[in-house]
Every structure is written in structure tokens, then in C-alpha cells.
């Protein structure tokens, strides 16, 4: 199957008062029609910038596409004009942002905001719009959808607002939905319900989802394939089983070693020492070497190569090369 989205060697920099800041470095991501892809990593590693770059929503002037291409159904998006992009956004790809309160208009009713979206891409009468809007709210599990149409965002709970945002994003049946931390502000019980809705809608519409989260549990529960990001780069990619059962990169291993084991309260969490590097002072070699328990001399000197751990399972690390050299030495 041809990929829906192919991000190739994308690098994004921001012009800041401290100078040029490279937030995303040589990132490649592929999304096939209908699949759920996860992007996981800690704060500031470039998850949001990557997704906003694909939709070309980064602040113009401040953000610069340094290298790479973004292929949408084989067509490069980078040369497209703003109006061509507008045609794509909403209809082909949609986004749910991190903070539901800032992405809903506080002075418009939920119904007005939903209908606005519907009117943009479909020819429907006012009454048809309203009926369709109510259907959408019902589909995302809101009780008394007719009543909700006339309510304002502040009259709804956080969970309800998030459901409304999903409804809006899905109003034009996009082929791809970016969900950027869609449940981070919610309680676990509400989170579970919103994730269920997302799963259900995805199955019904057959759309692809890119789910962005720092929560490994959420990612494990939702995604078939996963990209692990660290300090602006993808350090590992693979199926959910690869990442959770056979992690290859020391960072991924460290992340998993940060999670408590429900079956053993006494287990010591080894975690990862130190903290992520400042993007202005990026280490020359592997971006993880200062925190890596297995770092070697090579790690400090040059960017690590991309290695294959199995079919579709890749990681960026010097360990395999060192292993091979050692192997050569003994034979």
C-alpha cells in the first residue's frame, strides 16, 4: 500500500533572540492509510513541531524548513501555497491540539463552531448542518447532543470539550488526524473514554491517526507503530511490540525503566539520569550520550548510524557498530 504521508529527513529551525534553534533534526516518519502511529517522547523533544510542520501550521517567519520533504499521497507539500494547503487541511488532514480550551472559540456555541466547519467543505442547508452536527456529537459519545449544540465551551467539562474537538476534527472525515496530547489534561477515567471514542471513530471512518503523547501507557494502548523522539530526533521506530517488548535504543530502555511495575512495588526504578540537553547546546555526537549508561567514545564524536533491529524496527545508536567491530576482532 502506498503511504498516505511520508516525512523524509525533515529539519526545522526557529529564529529566536538567542539565535537559530534546531527543534527537529532529520526526522523521517511514514503513515499508511488507516493506521495509528504514535510519537512518544519527553517535553520539548519536537513532537508538536513535527506535526505542525506537516500541516504547515508553524509560525511563518519564525520557523524555517531547513531540509527534507513532506509527501502527501506522493505529492510534496512544501512548495504548496497557503490556499492550496487550506484545501488540504480540514478535508484531508485535521488536528486536535494539546489544549482544548484554546482551540475552541469561547464566544460561539458548540453548534455554531461545528456547523462552520461543515459549511466549509460540504453543501448543506442550515437544518442539515444542525442534524449532522448533532449526529457527530452523538457519535463521540456526548449525551443530549441537541442541547449541547446550543451550549458554550465553558459550560462543558474538560472531557466533553475534548469530545467536541474530536467531533469538529472529524466533521469532514479526514484521511489523517493528528491528535496532539488529546487526553493530557484529563482524568484517567475521562482519558480512557476519550481514547475509546477516538478508536471507535477511527475504525468507522477508516482514517489514519498520528497520536502524540508523552504517556507510554496511552501510546501502548492505541498505536500499532511507534516513533520514539529524543531532543529533536527519532531515536527508535518499530511496532508496539518492538518498542515495549524488545526496545533497542538505550533511551527507549530508560523510558521503560522509568515506569513502575504493578506486579512488583519493590522494583527499583532505574530511570534515566540527568536531563534532556538544551537545544542550543546540542552535543556533537549522539544527543543522548551524556545520559546514556552505555555511552562510548564514538558516541561523543559523531552522529550515530541508523541500525536495523528487525523488520521495520530501527534505532539510531553506535552500540551495534561497536558490537560488530568487537565481533571482527575476535574472529
Amino acid at each position: 500500500m502506498n503511504p498516505l504521508l511520508e516525512v523524509r529527513h525533515l529539519s526545522i529551525s526557529f529564529h529566536t533572540y538567542r539565535g537559530l534553534l534546531e527543534a527537529v533534526h532529520d526526522v523521517s516518519i511514514t503513515v499508511h492509510p488507516g493506521e495509528t502511529v504514535g510519537i512518544v517522547g519527553e517535553s520539548g523533544c519536537g513532537k508538536s513541531v513535527t506535526s505542525q510542520a506537516v500541516m504547515k501550521l508553524l509560525p511563518q517567519g519564525a520557523a524555517e524548513y531547513r531540509t527534507g520533504e513532506i509527501l502527501w499521497e506522493g505529492r510534496d507539500l512544501l512548495p504548496l501555497s497557503e490556499s492550496e494547503m487550506n484545501g488540504l487541511r480540514g478535508r484531508d488532514m485535521a488536528m486536535i491540539f494539546q489544549d482544548p480550551m484554546t482551540s475552541l472559540n469561547p464566544v460561539l456555541t458548540i453548534g455554531a463552531q461545528l456547523c462552520e466547519g461543515l459549511a466549509l467543505y460540504q453543501k448543506l442547508s442550515k437544518q442539515e448542518q444542525r442534524t449532522r452536527a448533532a449526529e457527530l456529537l452523538k457519535a463521540v459519545g456526548l449525551t443530549s447532543p441537541e442541547k449541547r449544540l446550543d451550549q458554550y465551551p465553558h459550560q462543558l467539562s474538560g472531557g466533553m470539550r475534548q469530545r467536541c474537538l474530536i467531533a469538529m476534527a472529524l466533521s469532514c472525515s479526514p484521511k489523517l488526524l493528528f491528535a496532539d496530547e488529546p487526553t493530557t489534561a484529563l482524568d484517567v477515567t475521562t482519558e480512557a473514554q476519550v481514547l475509546d471514542v477516538l478508536k471507535k471513530m477511527q475504525a468507522e471512518l477508516g482514517m489514519a491517526v498520528v497520536l502524540i503523547s508523552h504517556n507510554l501507557g496511552v501510546i501502548a494502548q492505541m498505536c500499532r507503530r511507534i516513533y520514539v523522539m529524543y531532543a529533536g530526533t527519532v531515536v527508535e521506530e518499530g511496532t508496539a511490540e518492538d518498542i515495549f517488548y524488545r526496545p533497542a535504543h538505550p533511551y527507549t530502555k530508560g523510558l521503560l525503566a522509568s515506569l513502575p511495575d504493578p506486579s512488583d512495588r519493590e522494583k527499583v526504578l532505574t530511570g534515566i539520569p540527568g536531563q534532556a540537553p538544551d537545544l542550543f547546546h546540542m552535543p556533537k555526537g549522539c544527543r543522548f550520550y551524556r545520559r546514556c549508561p552505555q555511552a562510548m567514545k564514538a558516541c561523543m564524536e559523531a552522529e550515530p548510524p541508523r541500525e536495523e533491529a528487525g523488520p521495520g524496527h530501527h534505532y539510531t545508536c553506535w552500540l551495534a557498530a561497536a558490537e560488530r567491530r568487537r565481533g571482527d576482532g575476535t574472529h
Binding site: L195, N215, I219, A220, A240, F244
Partner: peptide
Amino acid sequence: ASVPRPDP
């Protein structure tokens, strides 16, 4: 039950 488990 709601706690998302890091197990696919």
C-alpha cells in the same frame, strides 16, 4: 481499570 498500561 482506566490506568493506561504500557503493554500493547
